[in-house]
Every structure is written in structure tokens, then in C-alpha cells.
């Protein structure tokens, strides 16, 4: 039985870029343990030599001709940007 600690939840939340409070970590620890324990029923099945399915259809890579085509309009693309300056996206400082 997998047990998921509060610290593990906090680590996963960091990987997922989610800030998380202590209470939330506690709550999610219990819920994630419940779900992963439920998922462990899959271990009843012997899957040695079973090929994993990533996609159900026999897909092949689709290539188009290597030719430049117009992309989306720049002004349009900036329409949903909350903070911008001189046609560029503004974010908080990246380096201290």
C-alpha cells in the first residue's frame, strides 16, 4: 500500500508549479493515497511482455512540405496578454 506523505505532496505540487498550503497538502495526501491504492489493483495483472498502448490507432508521423506559411497575426496574439510593453509580454523579474 502506497502511503503519500505531506512532504511528498508538497514536492509534487512544486513540480506541478502549484503553491499549496499545509492544510491542502494534508487533504491531498489522503486523497492521493486513496486513488493510488485503488490503482494498485492493476498489479493483479501480469503484464510481462505486454506492449504499452500510447495511441489506439496505427499513427504515422505527418509531415508537410517544408515551406513557410503565414502564422497568426501578432497584434491578435497580444490581445489576451494582461501585461505588455512595446509588443512584448511583461513578466516579473526572472533574475534577482
Amino acid at each position: 500500500m502506497a502511503n503519500i506523505s505531506k512532504e511528498e505532496v508538497k514536492h509534487v505540487a512544486h513540480l506541478a508549479r502549484l503553491s499549496i498550503t499545509d492544510e491542502e497538502a494534508e487533504k491531498f495526501a489522503g486523497q492521493l493515497a486513496g486513488i493510488t491504492n485503488f490503482a494498485e489493483q492493476l498489479n493483479e495483472l501480469d503484464t510481462t511482455n505486454v506492449v504499452p498502448t500510447t495511441h489506439v490507432l496505427p499513427l504515422v508521423n505527418v509531415m508537410r512540405e517544408d515551406k513557410a506559411v503565414p502564422g497568426l497575426d501578432r497584434d491578435k496574439m497580444m490581445k489576451n496578454v494582461r501585461e505588455q510593453e512595446d509588443g512584448q509580454v511583461k513578466v516579473p523579474s526572472i533574475l534577482d
Partner: peptide, 19 residues
């Protein structure tokens, strides 16, 4: 929160903005 949609306010760093 960078190019579209909701963006948190009163944050100091990019990492904090994401989270």
C-alpha cells in the same frame, strides 16, 4: 498566467507568478 487568462497579482518572482 503569462500570455492569456488569469494572472495572480502581488507576486515578486516568475516562479511565484506561476505557482
Amino acid at each position: 498566467g503569462i500570455r492569456y487568462g488569469f494572472r495572480a497579482e502581488n507576486v515578486e518572482s516568475l516562479m511565484e507568478l506561476y505557482k
